[in-house]
């Protein structure tokens, strides 16, 4: 049984011991700006980690280093035990295994939703067209937008576009899904339709790193909450513990701000 299928069969809320993503002493600068300061983070199979923290604290950068959309200065990042390759085909192969969902959806604007979802499997995995399309339609059905398959991204609502983007990532059978504020660009009434899809993924055992301020999602689906501030991981704990008894002043400040607005 392959690791990918294994993930789906895990019982609800059970977390494996096998590390899917490991960051060890990761440092990252943008010029003089120290954005990731000695980050250590291990995410196990089936685990859902929510990353939370003030704007500019390095959450997006952390996500982006994991599939090497941003290179790191020093330290190690491993996916399923293997070091991230530098460039070229090996890196492309790794990225195919790690799904990424962006705040701004980033669906390919000139392609139909169906083509968006089949592109990766067809080009990166050489899946035949009809097989890729059948699976894409099943995925679109699963996220509730099968009837939008022939449309262009701009014809869909934000919530539908983000669900299409999730389907596009899932089509690669990723071992890990990265979500960078997937609901921040959405109108309030569309947030839940996206969160529901993410919760169901989490319940099925998908390994996920989710940058979000949606505490409801964290409480429903997260195994662990990681609090970042100024490039540092300041706190880690269960959602319950973090939200009710944050340890650091910065976490307390931050929670006070997001609760009272």
């Amino acid at each position: 049984m392959s690791g990918r299928e294994y993930g789906r069969l895990i019982m609800v809320d059970s977390v494996g011991t096998e590390p899917v993503a490991q960051m060890v002493n990761v440092q990252k600068h943008f010029g003089h700006l120290h954005v990731l300061k000695d980050i250590n983070l291990t995410v196990h199979r089936g685990e859902v980690v929510v990353v939370i923290g003030p704007s500019g604290s390095g959450k997006s950068t952390l996500c982006r280093t994991i599939n090497r959309l941003e290179p790191i200065d020093s330290g190690e990042i491993r996916i399923q035990g293997k070091l991230l390759p530098q460039e070229g085909r090996d890196l492309a192969r790794l990225r195919a295994d790690v799904g990424m969902v962006f705040q701004s959806f980033n669906l390919f604007a000139h392609m139909s939703i169906l083509d968006n979802v089949t592109l990766g499997p067809r080009k990166a995995r050489k899946v035949p067209k009809d097989k890729a399309e059948a699976e894409a339609l099943a995925l679109l059905d699963r996220v509730g937008i099968k009837d939008q398959a022939k449309k262009l991204p701009a014809q869909l609502s934000g919530g539908q576009q983000q669900r299409a983007a999730i389907a596009r990532a899932l089509a690669m059978h990723p071992v890990l899904m990265l979500f960078d504020e997937p609901t921040s660009a959405l109108d309030p009434e569309m947030i839940n339709e996206v969160l529901d899809v993410m919760v169901s993924l989490a319940k099925e055992g998908m390994t996920m790193i989710v940058v979000t301020h949606e505490m409801g999602f964290a409480r429903r689906a997260a195994d662990r909450v990681v609090f970042m501030s100024d490039g540092l991981i300041l706190e880690e704990g269960s959602p319950e513990a973090f939200f009710t008894t944050p340890q650091t002043d910065r976490a307390k400040d931050f929670l006070a701000k997001i609760l009272h607005h």
Partner: peptide, 12 residues
């Protein structure tokens, strides 16, 4: 973001 999404699904 278009190129990033493309690289993100494993395209060279």
């Amino acid at each position: 973001g278009q190129a990033e999404a493309a690289r993100g699904i494993g395209l060279t």
